[in-house]
């Protein structure tokens, strides 16, 4: 009698198992779908000093006051006690070409080598300068050891 009860209990327990297959089917469909829609890109951040409200604030910048000016067909590097260096501005897909980038890096590195401890540079861009070009200029400055970059524009209307 007790044996029969045990058998019955065993049968009941096997019948009450969860039906996992439908859930599994859903998950198997979901995983490839999520993986396919995922965008595998690494996003980084450049923390920076925002542009000042007016040019009046610029006069009190201490030290070398290094400036990288985007000026028509050239990039001009200038500062206190620094002879102006001009590099021809050649762009490709909105960013400086490889030779232009190399020339700029050399010029910036020569300034930082001559004035050790210089970390700050202001990038003066034209109103129409593309964002990619500005980011590339910031990269080049950082590569030359100028880690503290500030952005400024040629026009500051209504500030």
């Amino acid at each position: 009698m007790s044996r029969m009860r045990r058998k019955g209990a065993l049968q009941q327990s096997t019948e009450a198992q969860l039906e996992l297959r439908p859930l599994m089917n859903v998950i198997i469909v979901l995983i490839p779908m999520l993986l396919l829609s995922a965008v595998f890109m690494e996003i980084r951040a450049i923390e920076m000093t925002p542009p000042p409200a007016a040019h009046s604030a610029v006069a009190s910048v201490p030290g070398l006051d290094l400036v990288l000016r985007v000026q028509g067909s050239a990039y001009v590097i200038e500062g206190r006690d620094v002879a102006a260096i001009a590099v021809t501005r050649q762009n490709e897909n909105g960013a400086p070409t490889a030779p232009t980038a190399a020339a700029l890096t050399r010029a910036l590195a020569s300034v930082t080598a001559a004035h050790p401890g210089t970390k700050a540079i202001r990038i003066l861009a034209e109103p129409g300068t593309r964002y990619q070009e500005i980011v590339t200029l910031m990269d080049l400055a950082r590569a030359a050891g100028l880690t503290d970059t500030a952005l400024e524009g040629a026009t500051t209307k209504g500030a």
Partner: peptide
């Protein structure tokens, strides 16, 4: 954090940054 398109012009970026500040 500013997520700007690579083709936007600097004058727009400058205005946004000024407004944020």
């Amino acid at each position: 954090t500013i997520q700007g398109d690579q083709d936007i012009e600097f004058r727009l970026l400058q205005k946004v940054m000024y407004t944020v500040n």
